[in-house]
Design a protein around this nucleic acid. Sequence first.
RNA 1: GGAGAGAUGGCAGAGCGGUUGAAUGCACCGGUCUUGAAAACCGGCGUACCGAGAGGUAUCGGGGGUUCGAAUCCCUCUCUCUCCGCCA
Length: 423
Amino acid sequence: MLELQRIRNEKEAVLEGLKKRNIDATATITKLLEVDQEWRLSKAELEGISAELNQIAKEIGDLFKQGKQEEANAAKSKTADLKEKESTLKTKVDGLDAEMTQLLYQLPNVPNELVPAGKNELDNITVLEVGSKRIYDFEAVPHWDLAKKYDLIDFELGVKITGAGFPIYKGKGAKLQRALIAFFLEEAEKAGYEEFIPPLVVNEASGYGTGQLPDKEGQMYYVNEDDLYLIPTAEVPLTNIYRDVILPSEDFSIKMTGYTPCFRREAGSYGKDVRGLNRLHQFDKVEIVRIEHPSNSEKALEEMIDHVKGLLEKLGLHYRILRLCGGDTGFASAMTYDFEVYSAAQEKWLEVSSVSRFDTFQSTRLKLRFKTADKKTQLCHTLNGSALALPRIVASLLENHQTPEGVIVPEALRKYTGFDIIN
RNA sequence: GGAGAGAUGGCAGAGCGGUUGAAUGCACCGGUCUUGAAAACCGGCGUACCGAGAGGUAUCGGGGGUUCGAAUCCCUCUCUCUCCGCCA
């Protein structure tokens, strides 16, 4: 959620920034400022009346103490009118307040100055490409066929047990999952991230905290009986650890990591994009989350990017990094870098990681703050990234490391898998 | 699932319907003392919003009610704890 203060003070800059998302927020913001203006006036009036009532109540108390019953009772009669006004104004102020919140929820984050304007993925900027497309001297096979050939993943069996999008990993396929998770966690630990194992279901407040609610309500699985949501990413429980927290000093840098399964309804997906491991309802992911002083979030983002680069390089994957354009940047994000690995077999780039800085967009909702040296409270910045999500990494590994003899396991992974080839 | 108890400031823990935004202790910050530290003593110490400021308002789990006045009374929801049952 954008800070109201910022919209008041930098209206033009906010509008200009949102244009990069192809959003003309003029109407919303004009309305918002109107409501805000009225809210402030009404609130001032309300508080004046409350003050008056408080004053009278105090006087009545004193009169009773002095035994002046009659005067006290006389004073009581003065309040009826004020109470009536107070009640009306209270309703009005609450209504305006709710209206502002509603309007604020509609506004996405303002993109960072580096974010290019643009509509969709075509406008993203490739900032780096490492490696080159592999040339095959045989027909490259897509991962879903490889998974079948080597009996690694059974998609049909998953349909039987649960439904489409819930694959069953078996044998070396299962072990590869476990190896990747261990590898990613250990790399994160080496980079200074503390490991957490959070709950896989969260309450409503947590959903609002990181911005999944109310924007993406339909994307999460919902447990009606207990009013809980299955997490779509470890970002939700990990970041919410710091909901309603005021860090005691401005000297902090919180680095968390966690492996969790992730659950996404993916309503609206269809066709080729969902083939094989490309899009699942349940998948595994190691997430990295950071909570930073505003002055450090730029550096933190760089570090996270370097971390993900390191992972992909250790896995021997050819990849590129995109700086997403305004239109492709997520609702809550101020700037997002996507990592994509090229799949020759599918003849397309697969998104394997997304690293974002949210600035104060999440911490506004989370009420995540820190104390400055002069004892003021100030909002923290939050960031997060996948490091990494498994399915498309598995797809990439299978497709890019395939040989006629089998799939070669990257060196870095072997100590976790215990085997060096899948055949 | 059944029965009971409870929810107050960073923590612990008082609180009669009327200067209680809230005693007290601990923690924390500043100071005095000390060569330094500890101890002792003095002072400070929640959050949010409105306001240029003075100041005002709200907040004792959430919501509603009674009252001139609610942390204190009533209703309701949520959560926590204890015991019993069930179970990994």
